[in-house]
Design a protein around this nucleic acid. Structure first.
Length: 416
DNA sequence: TCTGGGGTCCTAGGACCC
DNA sequence: TCTGGGGTCCTAGGACCC
């Protein structure tokens, strides 16, 4: 029995999914064939490129770039809005097909999966044939293309899926590392980002091969334990298993939002923190968890980023209590400079079976428990905005802010 | 109307304890 | 009154990923 790992990556996921959906709805234009990007709403200061077509890429447009800058590179650029519900559906449909090939599938993100594929006997098809078959099924049944990397471990499969695109199957077996991976720029290695590749370049390391062969002690001097990780990856060393993602180990959950306008006063900030606390609290309770730590983050209009956190005496999942702590943290953190973005995050998560209410706490958690669960039930039945706090009426703010912060997006990560 | 949102992991330094 | 040396917990900040 031989074991193979596949990495499946949707080509320009958001754009491809939007394209397939438009064609399905009778649109004549395939937006994949023209310079086009999926972009956020500039009016609410969410104007960045979330995904691009190959034609847009040819104009030098990058993901994450401001739409304004993308338009300068390509004046006739087409911009379409994101549709997260669609992405969830497309993602789930794809995973459904993949699971018909192997039960062991790890969803790595909304558009990426690792698959542990066992070839059981000599009569079985070889993994490359299977990968082509899988890619073809996704394309024919769902209308979008994927790249599939085939290897014997996750890092190599992932690197392979990043080779030429779109709609391709690539192998990167250990004996192909030298030829296929080592000549690549070191910045293309997984976990070598902007800062690390800059440091590596300063050390004269420009390719993955040079990193693979570099002196380990020298690397350790500059990168500490990170040296072993990236040099291991450069040599194709990775024994991490494909994990079932049906029971992901959640470490924390948070929501943040860029507010439509600059926040200049604490009262408005409190409102935004409440809308964020609402979604964080709902997610916590949906996961049947309690959190022992709350953090608040502030991004200034100058993009300075600050975060302040506090460990709690009692783990809890009450929206009101999260908000109360968030307000206190905000007061301690804020220097009164104009705010662009606010975030609330909880971590130190525990299953809520064992929550013990501290006698020292003067806070009435049982009251919150009834309110929260009643609100959760109503929202589950009639939608998130079926019940909102009165303070949000006429505020111009979303009463519940999660995901991308538009009206009724599902909260993406709760599904992964 | 230039620059989103949601994650994980690691390190450094201070407080505190024995 | 030349100041050890473990250890844990906590917070801040930075790096990376999608």
């Amino acid at each position: 029995m031989s074991r193979y790992i596949f990495h499946i990556d949707v080509n320009s996921a958001y754009l491809s999914w939007t394209a397939a959906d438009r064609l399905y709805r009778g649109d004549k234009l395939d937006i994949r064939t023209v310079p086009c990007v999926v972009g956020g709403n500039e009016k609410s200061r969410h104007g960045i490129v979330l995904a691009k077509s190959m034609k847009a890429k040819q104009h030098g447009i990058h993901t994450g770039e401001p739409l304004m800058s993308a338009r300068q590179k390509c004046p006739n650029l087409m911009v379409v809005p994101p549709n997260y519900k669609l992405y969830m559906k497309a993602s789930q449909a794809m995973v459904g097909i993949i699971k018909s090939y192997s039960p062991l599938v790890q969803q790595f993100s909304v558009d990426e999966c690792f698959v542990d594929y066992n070839v059981l006997g000599p009569s079985s098809k070889d993994p490359v044939t299977i990968a082509h078959e899988l890619g073809k099924r996704i394309k024919e049944e769902l209308g979008f293309t994927v790249n599939i990397g085939v290897s014997t471990c996750k890092i190599l499969a992932k690197m392979a899926s990043d080779f030429q695109k779109p709609d391709k199957v690539h192998t990167l077996f250990p004996n192909e590392i030298r030829e296929k991976m080592w000549p690549l720029p070191v910045s293309e290695l997984f976990m070598v980002g902007r800062r690390t590749s800059k440091k590596l370049l300063e050390l004269g390391i420009t390719t993955i091969g040079q990193l693979a062969l570099a002196d380990t002690q020298m690397l350790e001097y500059h990168f500490k334990s990170y040296a072993y990780l990236i040099q291991g990856y450069a040599n194709g060393l990775d024994d991490s298993p494909v994990r079932h993602s049906n029971q992901p180990v959640v470490k924390g959950m948070g929501n943040s939002t860029t507010v439509k306008f600059n926040v200049l006063d604490a009262a408005t900030a409190y409102q935004v923190l409440l809308s964020l606390s609402e979604s964080v609290g709902m997610r916590l309770r949906a996961a049947q968890m309690c959190a022992g730590l709350v953090a608040v983050s502030i991004t200034s209009t100058e993009f300075g980023h600050q975060i302040h956190q506090r460990k709690l005496q009692v783990a809890m999942n009450s929206t009101s209590y999260i908000h109360r702590i968030a307000r206190e943290l905000f007061d301690e953190l804020w220097d009164r400079s104009p705010i662009r973005k606010l975030g609330v995050r909880v971590s130190d998560l525990h299953s809520n079976d064992y929550v013990q209410l501290s006698l020292l706490e003067d806070y009435n958690f049982s009251r919150d428990k009834y309110i929260d669960s009643a609100v959760d039930v109503i929202r589950g039945r009639y939608g998130t905005n079926a019940i909102v706090r009165a303070s949000f009426l006429h505020s111009g703010l979303n009463p519940v802010t999660g995901g991308i912060g538009e009206d009724d997006y599902p909260i993406m990560t709760s599904i992964l």
